[in-house]
Amino acid sequence: MVSRLPLLLYRAVPLLRLQARSVSTSGYHFNELPLTFSSPYESFYKKQNISQVDVSTLSGDMGILPDHVPVIAALSPGLVSVYEENGDINKFFVSSGVVTVNEDSSVQILAEEAAPLTHLDRLEAQKGLDKCQQDLNSASSEEDRATANIGIDFYEAALKAL
């Protein structure tokens, strides 16, 4: 009887290991963060594993790491910083959109407009901001005012990101 015990243990070990693995993939712990990041006309990431992504939402800025709680949020104009697994940081500017973190730790960022930060021009942003401020001053209706305010938010965020 005694002599059989180690054998049983020996047999049980792979079994235990198998169980441990199946637990980790069934929703308790994730080391991966597959990101899908796309605008209507350009896709930047398609289920690519990354180590972190920072976004700014209507309810505040948010850093997403693997194993984040599921969350949905609306993007506000601002920076999306993607930390790739090899340590590179890619920065994008988005106008608006949505971000979803799902239970399986996958992240979707869908932006209405998105561009790498290097494509933005400080001078143009300043010009746009000035124009929107002018519009705000000359706005007569509630709608014009709202449009101008959205423009100001956008250009201010762009200038801040640059």
Binding site: L58, V71, S96
Partner: peptide
Amino acid sequence: SVYDDIDNDVLQCYHEFSLASLIF
């Protein structure tokens, strides 16, 4: 309910954007 603190505004925005994205 598994999604963290959602208020109605966010959900409304999210829903409108999703509908537009799907139609697109």
